[in-house]
Structures are given as C-alpha cells and as structure tokens.
C-alpha cells in the first residue's frame, strides 16, 4: 500500500468519524459509532434516516464541510446521499476539509 493510499484512507476515516458522530448526535440514530457500517443505506432501511434527518444532514454537510447544496448540481447531492461512503466521496470531492492528499484518488480506475 503506497503513501497516497494511506493518506486517502486516513482522510476517509476522519470524515467517517465526523459523519457517524453527527448521525448519533444530530440525527438521534441509536447505534454505537462502529455499528454504522460505511456502505449501508442511510435512508429508508439501513440506518433508517427519514426526510427530517435529510434536512439535518444537508445542514451538517454545509456547516461542517462547507458543502453547499446550491453550489453543486442538486442531482449530485441527491445521488451522494446514499451511504456513508458516498457522503465521504462527496466531502472529499467538494468539501473544505483541508486534506492535502490528491483529490480524485477514490475514483481512479
């Protein structure tokens, strides 16, 4: 595993921890952080968020990561609100996270 990959993993884990905390504290998900698996559906089944939580989540993404729904294609926002991992992709692609690793590594084919 090269350093770029290690950096990417560290960045992802940091965002993941913040998102998990927000789910528990702001969206009142009654689960321990490590029970919130990263590829599980956020809405409907899975983590079980609903429309009110979606609003909280959008607010959190803006306040924590500077992600503005209006800045990006709303379809991208919607398409990224699937799982913790897709949210992390979104944050790393558009958010003001201060990470220095090469953006886009997550999507290099």
């Amino acid at each position: 595993m090269d350093n770029a990959t290690r950096g990417l993993i560290a960045a992802r884990e940091e965002v993941l921890a913040k998102l998990r905390l927000a789910l528990i504290e702001k969206m009142h998900v009654r689960r321990a952080a490590d029970e919130l698996d990263p590829d599980v559906a956020l809405f409907g089944s899975g983590i079980g968020l609903d429309s009110l939580d979606a609003v909280e989540l959008v607010v959190f993404l803006e306040s924590e990561f500077g992600l503005k729904a209006t800045d990006n294609d709303p379809m991208i926002m919607r398409g990224s609100m699937r799982t913790l991992n897709t949210l992390i992709d979104l944050v790393l692609a558009f958010g003001k996270t201060g990470f220095t690793y090469a953006k886009g590594a997550a999507h290099d084919a």
């Binding site: 595993m1 990959t5 990417l8 993993i9 992802r12 884990e13 991992n85 992390i88 997550a106 999507h107």
Partner: peptide
C-alpha cells in the same frame, strides 16, 4: 478491514 476502503487497489 485495513484494505476495505473505497479507492484501495
């Protein structure tokens, strides 16, 4: 687990 992150080859 160490490898189970998106982007890892």
């Amino acid at each position: 687990l160490d490898h189970a992150h998106p982007g890892v080859l």
